[in-house]
């Protein structure tokens, strides 16, 4: 299915060495993102979605250590991002220009004491030698493209003068100002209210089609995934537990965790009067985790001696559909 791969993550492990032990935020993630496709990564808080996203651009805070391979096929030659030094020129050339990122809190993501225009122009000028007036012109054009009214005025606004939705649009404008091949969106709509959410999602879809880029869309909202993604990776405790096309995941969820997630979606017009299904327990903290299925403690199909014996392998159940669960062996 995926012969035109843009980014390939192989056995990614991001560990944080803490006083209390080794926190394995990501423990062996392998993923591939095709050109022009949208990959959705879903999971509860603490499952490693955001760390995966940040690992790609080497933005993991200290004392995080990244191991494994992240191959980017956007340039002339494939580059292994995981092997690049995090403050070196090589990764800095890719950040913003080839791979851009947008964040969850648009209010916090802009510096409060610089204008929006200044911060967007800076992104442009970091990668292109463009005189100031031209960069400003491009900025205004980008703001217009993301649907900000009166961009000539807005360009000189400070973040506190704009609403959350406007700021997220500005953030998208900044991320797309250099036409990146890959956009990483880390919960871009979580902090916004629902109507604004829908607007932002529509905008992202439109721009993805227009500009022809790939998107990694990280969220805990399955509705958003169904709306946005072509492919879906479900993450749990630092690992991908199920991967497939959006159709496969929603119509035939196979991992007990994915199934439980699907059952926890409230359905409009359903007759049931009972409580909304929820998953018992919480995601444990992966501090020196034992080698076992991470979901075993919360799983209704738990098999003693099997699930807690080793980490289950990823098993192909149909073309392009993989599950990390021994039930499918």
């Amino acid at each position: 299915m995926m012969n035109d791969v843009l980014l390939e993550i192989k056995n990614l492990r991001t560990y944080f060495k803490l006083h209390e032990g080794i926190l394995k935020a990501i423990d062996g993630v392998s993923l591939a993102i095709g050109r022009n496709r949208v990959l959705g990564i879903v999971g509860e808080s603490g499952c490693g979605k955001s760390v995966t996203a940040r690992s790609i651009l080497k933005l993991v805070p200290a004392p995080g250590k990244i191991e494994g391979e992240i191959w980017f096929h956007g340039g002339e030659k494939p580059v292994n991002l995981a092997a690049l030094p995090p403050t070196g020129n090589a990764i800095r050339d890719i950040r913003g220009r080839e791979i851009a990122m947008i964040f969850q809190e648009p209010m916090a993501a802009f510096s409060p004491v610089h204008t929006i225009g200044d911060q967007i122009s800076e992104a442009i000028q970091t990668h292109q030698s463009l005189p100031k007036p031209e960069a400003r012109g491009r900025t205004i054009e980008m703001l217009k493209q993301v649907g900000i009214p009166i961009p000539e005025r807005r360009v000189d606004n400070y973040p506190h003068q704009m609403s959350g939705g406007m700021l997220q649009r500005a953030m998208i404008a900044m991320a797309l100002s250099l036409r990146p091949k890959l956009l990483i969106a880390d919960e871009p709509t979580t902090a916004l209210d629902v109507t604004i959410q829908a607007q932002i999602l529509r905008l992202m879809k439109r721009l993805q089609a227009e500009l022809g880029m790939s998107i990694i869309f990280i969220t805990h909202d399955l509705g958003v995934i169904a709306n946005m993604a072509d492919d879906v990776a479900v993450m749990y405790l630092g690992r991908v537990v199920e991967y497939g096309t959006v159709r496969q995941i929603f119509e035939n969820p196979q991992h007990p965790y994915t199934q439980a997630l699907m059952q926890s979606i409230p359905k409009l017009g359903s007759k049931g009067r009972g409580r909304l299904a929820s998953i018992e327990g919480t995601v444990p903290v992966p501090l020196d985790p034992p080698r076992r299925c991470g979901f075993a403690d919360r799983c209704v199909h738990f098999i003693p001696g099997r699930c807690d014996a080793d980490v289950p392998p990823l098993i192909d159940t149909e073309a392009g559909h993989q599950v990390r669960c021994i039930l499918y062996e």
Binding site: G96, E105, S111, Q119, T126, M174
Partner: peptide, 30 residues
């Protein structure tokens, strides 16, 4: 230094020195 806007600046591809002095230092001086 740990604020989100610092990560944003880093994600733009700015050098550590430039982004540190333009953003967090500038704000910490207030």
């Amino acid at each position: 230094l740990g604020k989100q806007y610092v990560v944003t600046a880093r994600a733009k591809g700015l050098s550590e020195r430039r982004l540190t002095f333009k953003y967090p230092v500038r704000i910490a001086i207030n």
